[in-house]
């Protein structure tokens, strides 16, 4: 059996790759993909520790997380679409009619 620490390292690495993507990319679609990476990092933990603890709570919750991620992308794509219509691009730094 693979020791559980390995899963933690793997998920932490994927989480950090996603976070790095969010902080450096300006394309809204890449931003969505990075968020998916971060959510899937959580899923790795949930499924791995579901096995370690011997209950299915984690696996079940991982299914919920996937469904919610899909819902979130649906809303996100809608917002990116109106962003494209109003600002003529999907660069998140273009939308600056209000100051940060």
């Amino acid at each position: 059996m693979v020791p559980p620490e390995y899963y933690l390292v793997l998920s932490a690495a994927i989480f950090c790759i996603g976070l790095f993507g969010i902080l450096t990319r300006r394309n809204a679609l890449l931003f969505l993909m990075s968020v998916e990476l971060m959510l899937n990092a959580a899923n790795i933990n949930l499924v791995a520790f579901s096995y370690v603890w011997g209950n299915v709570t984690g696996q079940t919750f991982a299914l919920f997380t996937m469904a919610l991620a899909a819902a979130e992308v649906a809303i996100g794509l809608g917002i990116i679409m109106v962003l494209y219509r109003n600002f003529g691009g999907v660069d998140v730094t273009d939308a600056t009619t209000m100051r940060w």
């Binding site: 998920s11 933990n45 949930l46 520790f49 919750f61 997380t65």
Partner: peptide, 18 residues
Amino acid sequence: SAVFAFGISLVYAATGSL
């Protein structure tokens, strides 16, 4: 929400319950 989900997974890893 991604950070929140990862936090939940870590708490689950440490305690085995939600």
